[in-house]
Design a protein around this nucleic acid. Structure first.
Lengths: 129, 129
DNA sequence: TTGCGTGCAAAGGTTTTGCATGGCA
DNA sequence: TGCCATGCAAAACCTTTGCACGCAA
């Protein structure tokens, strides 16, 4: 399976990368790119591709049928888990040793393979407490 | 806001409670209840109601547009974290000691308070591997 | 040149909603 | 009795797909 680097794919990834602190719905991306002639179906196809490759994180939005996507910014992000504050929405990194230790334990005890890119530990952050 | 106890609501909650270890899609519930004359829209309306009340947990199933719902059995479920298979949608329990140990570590290191009822560790289960 | 990617429009699947009727409190 | 809930069908909504054409490698 080959993989072309097209203008469309470059632009979509660029937007996600440039605002890796926030989440986008497909609709939002498509709207931003419609003036450049990029279609909704291309955004869907591209975001699905990025998601299955583990390059973006996906979250269901309450009170909506939509998902929101966020670029997973550094190469090291897949090495650890993330904390997501349910109050302010901010994302925090969990230290590698804690993450890998947990992942190893779950692997051994439950024979379950955690996917870091699809997991968010949800709760309340320091500031929001 | 009042709240009627109807036969339909009773039956839906009963099914969820009686199999609180597993997840149901709305379609599955509706199919189980169709012979009793309970309609799809009632199942949707009821499950949405339960979800907004925090009585059921919701999980997106990868490779599907559907959500799966699971009854939250307060006494036992809030004590530990859960593993959710992104393939089959099944939910597994993470042992209490691993959960509480993780939660304690995150509390100390990040000053972040994990909410077990809103957190799902996502990945691939033994059978789907 | 070859085969994948794209845009468009249409189809597909899921969820919500309007309305008349029925039922709980 | 007064609302709220339900069933049905239609609408709304989000996502995927078929097809012809364009473009990257």
């Amino acid at each position: 399976m080959s993989s072309y680097v097209t203008e469309q794919r470059k632009r979509i990834l660029e937007i996600l990368k440039n605002s890796s602190e926030r989440l986008f719905t497909v609709e939002e991306l498509a709207e931003m790119l419609s003036c450049e002639g990029i279609s909704l179906s291309t955004v869907y196809r591209t975001i699905n591709r990025l998601y299955s490759k583990g390059l973006v994180r996906r979250t269901a939005i309450d009170g909506s049928r939509k998902f929101a996507y966020q670029y997973i910014d550094d190469e090291h992000c897949t090495e650890h888990l993330h904390l997501s504050c349910t109050q302010c929405g901010k994302i925090f990194h969990l230290e590698n040793d804690i993450s890998s230790n947990l992942i190893k334990q779950i692997q051994q005890k439950n024979n379950f393979l955690i996917d870091n890119s699809k997991t968010l530990l949800r709760g309340i952050c320091d500031r929001c407490k």
